[in-house]
Nucleic acid binder design. Structure first.
Lengths: 138, 138
DNA sequence: CTACAATCTCCAGCGACTAGAGGTTCAAGC
DNA sequence: GCTTGAACCTCTAGTCGCTGGAGATTGTAG
């Protein structure tokens, strides 16, 4: 049986985060010692690894909740898991596109700055006036 | 003089957000009518446009606070404004790189899914075991 | 048996808003 | 002048996914 600290070390998830996951029901209520300290088994370590990995991949907690539920029903069709992953991927792509447009705008702004005084600074000017931007959308 | 609603329409910033900006000191405390309603002039509209545009470009409120202060001292060197913009751009690039790695991993995951049952689903399997990922870092 | 690291619970805070409750004011139409 | 109702006011709480602190208790090594 693992203490919360050991579980934390094994999974790379911080102790308060593990407690938080228990609180929001992402991790099951761990059994306690007589002194009310949490103890964990191997299944909990796996589950926490799953959660951590999904979080690293940017899945939201609600999506992870669904994915965990699905993973407990191995006989069901995996269409839903697939849909969740694809939906998330679309969102990631959307964010990449937005950030890329944004980067272009920032680059443009910074390159035009002649390193003089604030009064002529393109950075400040462009911020003050959107119409000086390359692209309408960002 | 503009009411908060008119200012909102002109700048595209929502009414509660304008009040929030006043609260955190990003917008000055607007003068009030006898009935305690806010009234704004042209300068405030410009300032709010500046803020909105900077937010659209992803600058944090603290950075915007600094940029606004700088924009009020037109004789000063714009090195600091430049530095803020470059710092932000570096951060945006970092996020793009991270999301791109993430997308690759998701793509890999989703493409390998054979649309069968959850038990053999690659999406679930990969989430459960990080070592099945293409790249160590994401 | 003592020391002290680790754990416990509970609460507050982050960033940047957003939403709602419950009350007041402004402006237009009659 | 009066009524209506949209717009405004303040205040509080909620969002997401944690993170940190206070103050008390427990587990374990020497």
């Amino acid at each position: 049986m693992l203490s919360i600290g050991e579980l934390s070390r094994r999974t790379g998830v911080k102790v308060p985060t593990i407690r938080y996951y228990e609180q929001i029901g992402l991790m099951p209520l761990a059994p306690r010692t007589e002194g009310k300290q949490r103890r964990y088994g191997v299944d909990e370590a796996s589950r926490l690894n799953f959660i951590r990995h999904a979080r690293e991949l940017g899945f939201e907690v609600e999506a992870i909740r669904e994915l965990l539920q699905l993973s407990e029903k191995p006989d069901q069709s995996c269409a839903e898991a697939d849909a969740i992953a694809r939906r998330h991927m679309a969102e990631v792509e959307r964010r990449i596109d937005q950030l890329t447009a944004l980067r272009a705008e920032l680059q443009h702004m910074v390159e035009e700055c002649s390193h003089g005084r604030v009064g002529e600074c393109r950075v400040i000017q462009v911020l003050a006036d959107h119409s000086q931007c390359e692209h309408e959308r960002h």
